[in-house]
Computed example of a mutant assay.
Amino acid sequence: MSKLFSFQCQACCCDTNARAGVFYTPHGAIETPRFMPVGTLANVKTITPDQLRATGAQMVLANTYHLHLQPGETIVAQAGGLHRFMAWDGPILTDSGGFQVFSLSEMRQISDEGVTFRSPKDGQMIHLTPERSIAIQNALGADVIMAFDECPPYPASRESVMEATDRTYRWLKRCMAAHQRTDQALFGIVQGGVYPDLRQDAARMLADLDLPGYAIGGVSVGEPPELIEHIVKVTTPLLPPEKPRYLMGVGTYREMVQAIAAGMDLFDCVIPTRLARHANALVRGDRWNMRNARFREDFTPLDGECPCYTCQHFTRAYLSHLLRAQELLGYTLLSIHNITELVRFTQRIRTAILNGRFKTEFGQWL
């Protein structure tokens, strides 16, 4: 790992593999475990960077695939990189674009060389290879960049998943050779579908490469929650304990607690802003449809214990009015609250681990 990056474990749970730590990057530290909001196109939908900082968010995601299509990595580089472009001075992580490309099942062709797909924006044919993905991410300038991987669907045959897992490993080696910047940490991604032995073999092979960090990908693609839990539980202990561990695309309360108990540190999901755009609020583990008639004359805060801007200034009745009227402010206020809720949830878990109370306080999720 570059001297610009390090991970320090501060406390471990006596009853599980949960841990609290700090991941240091050139743009600041991330206290783990931590939920990371998704800012696909260099913005977290409907809110400003200042509003995002106020939620307690420490690290933000952006997406290589989407930014390559618009505005293009050249423009971002000319602006001084993602941090200046989106006015976010904290750590940033970019996904490789692999998941988005492989979701275009009817528009792409896969080979050992890379993926060729038709742009959904203008129909242009685009060829994305491990080297190209890394070049784009080097130009974007995020603190953490992800290796280009093949994300198999669910369900998929063992043979096809094995082929994708092997290809992901070969592509990782090419990503490592192509990576040019010491101020960016390249994370490898463990694939293997729902086959525990393939996951474990992949984790062992990636661990031998001594990367700055490791991710588990290819979960939450349609498989039952109990399979996600099992895969994470049998895979995580094989990842180097001195490196940060990132579970991609997971952001529900139960899934995060179970993954933290297995030893994961970082999480991302589009849930908070997507729910907000559908008028749903996250309140202490529940989802409330704020267009519901029961909120029309409810003049209490959304959550009286939440410190976010929304809960400190507005009532449920006002939020319900905005959302029923489809006023844009309603989506902003719900996004602020929902992100704060998920960040605070992982902060509470971190505090419980530090105080030796993780299983006591969160055992109901295990």
Rank of each mutant, 00 (worst) to 15 (best):
M1P: 11
C9R: 01
C13I: 11
A18P: 09
A20G: 13
Y24T: 14
Y24L: 13
T25R: 03
H27F: 08
G28L: 10
E31N: 15
T32R: 10
P33E: 09
F35D: 03
F35L: 05
P37Q: 03
V38I: 11
V38A: 02
A42N: 02
K45I: 08
I47C: 07
I47N: 04
P49I: 02
L52G: 08
L52H: 11
R53L: 15
G56C: 07
Q58P: 15
L61T: 06
L67E: 01
L69R: 01
G72F: 10
R84T: 03
G90E: 05
I92H: 00
I92E: 00
L93I: 15
G98W: 00
G98D: 04
F99Y: 14
S105N: 14
Q109N: 11
I110A: 04
D112F: 11
F117V: 09
F117E: 07
D122W: 05
D122G: 05
M125Y: 06
T129L: 01
I134V: 15
A142D: 02
A142F: 00
V144D: 01
M146D: 04
M146W: 07
Y154R: 02
Y154P: 02
A156L: 00
V161G: 00
E163P: 00
T165A: 01
Y169A: 12
R170N: 13
R170L: 13
R170D: 13
R170A: 12
W171D: 03
W171T: 04
R174A: 05
Q180C: 06
T182D: 15
Q184I: 03
L186N: 04
F187Q: 09
F187L: 15
V190A: 10
V190N: 05
D197F: 04
R204N: 05
L211R: 04
A215N: 07
I216V: 15
V219M: 09
V219A: 03
S220Y: 03
E223C: 06
P224N: 14
P225W: 15
P225H: 14
P225G: 03
E226T: 06
H230I: 02
V232H: 01
K233M: 13
V234S: 05
V234Y: 01
P237K: 08
L239Y: 04
E242G: 10
E242Q: 13
P244R: 12
R245A: 07
V250T: 09
G251W: 03
G251R: 02
R254Y: 06
E255N: 14
M256Q: 06
V257H: 06
Q258L: 11
Q258W: 02
A259I: 05
A262F: 10
G263R: 02
D265G: 14
D265H: 13
T273M: 12
H278L: 11
A279C: 13
A281M: 08
V283Q: 07
V283S: 07
R284W: 14
D286F: 10
D286L: 12
R291T: 14
R291M: 14
R294M: 14
R294C: 09
F299C: 12
F299S: 09
T300I: 13
D303M: 04
D303N: 08
G304D: 14
T310D: 10
C311S: 10
C311K: 06
T315H: 08
A317W: 06
L319H: 11
A325F: 07
Y331K: 11
T332C: 13
S335N: 11
H337M: 10
I339K: 05
T340V: 05
E341H: 10
T346S: 10
R348T: 12
T351H: 15
I353T: 06
E361P: 04
L366D: 08
